[in-house]
């Protein structure tokens, strides 16, 4: 993730209190060196549970251009919703305003959603895929436009594997893992009985 568009990768992370940490890379492409974390501000205030009307705990961050204006926005899965922080800065200096809550035609999103933006159905518009607390993975089709996305109700993405079925608190990464041109899913998890946290790979058929 390149926060400030300088060509070298930075790191961002949420935390349990709802903060957004930015670790700027002060090294090189080959040898990244991260500076001490800086807490993100939006509308002049540090983002943390309660700092803004909609800011909640347990932030899971996704940095992507959701509203088609060429700037990456922050989509944050929280305890009971997904909020959208619009980037009103520029590519090298992102700046964010008060968040708004995202909705879908079925209502709100599941608890502790892990949002991921991708054109899943390849119709030229970005859709949303989310991992959830309960372990379901959902596809929300963008039935709006590129610049004004509107999400349909959830459609479950069926994933199988015996042990996987017991896991929950799913966190998603979507990538072409094996470079075969098909989308693959990586799913992080929690399984309290064994205090485990495997990473599952589901290769696209």
């Amino acid at each position: 993730m390149d926060w400030n568009n300088d060509g070298i990768k930075d790191l961002i992370s949420g935390d349990t209190n709802g903060r957004v940490w930015i670790f700027m890379n002060t090294g090189t492409k080959e040898k990244p060196v991260l500076a001490e974390g800086v807490q993100l501000k939006a509308a002049g205030k540090i983002v943390i549970n309660g700092s803004h009307e909609l800011a909640g705990p347990y932030s899971k961050i996704h940095y992507a251009d959701w509203d088609g204006d060429g700037l990456n926005n922050l989509l944050i899965g929280q305890l009971s919703n997904i909020v959208f922080y619009k980037n009103v800065g520029n590519k090298s200096e992102p700046e964010f305003v008060d968040p708004v809550e995202l909705t879908n035609t079925g209502g709100s999103f599941p608890d502790r959603s892990s949002p991921y933006v991708i054109d899943w159905d390849e119709d030229g518009k970005k859709d949303m895929i989310i991992g959830t607390e309960n372990g379901n993975i959902f596809f929300y089709k963008n039935i709006g436009t590129v610049k004004s996305p509107k999400l349909s109700e959830a459609k479950e993405i069926k994933l199988e594997s015996e042990e996987f079925a017991k896991s929950y608190r799913h966190r998603l990464e979507i990538t072409d893992w094996n470079n075969d041109g098909k989308i693959d899913l990586l799913v992080g998890e929690r399984y309290a009985q064994e205090k485990r946290g495997y990473i599952w790979l589901f290769l696209g058929k």
């Binding site: 899943w120 993405i157 994933l159 098909k182 495997y198 599952w200 790979l201 589901f202 290769l203 696209g204």
Partner: peptide, 8 residues
Amino acid sequence: KTFQPGVK
């Protein structure tokens, strides 16, 4: 989209 069974 469909997926193969998951592996760790």
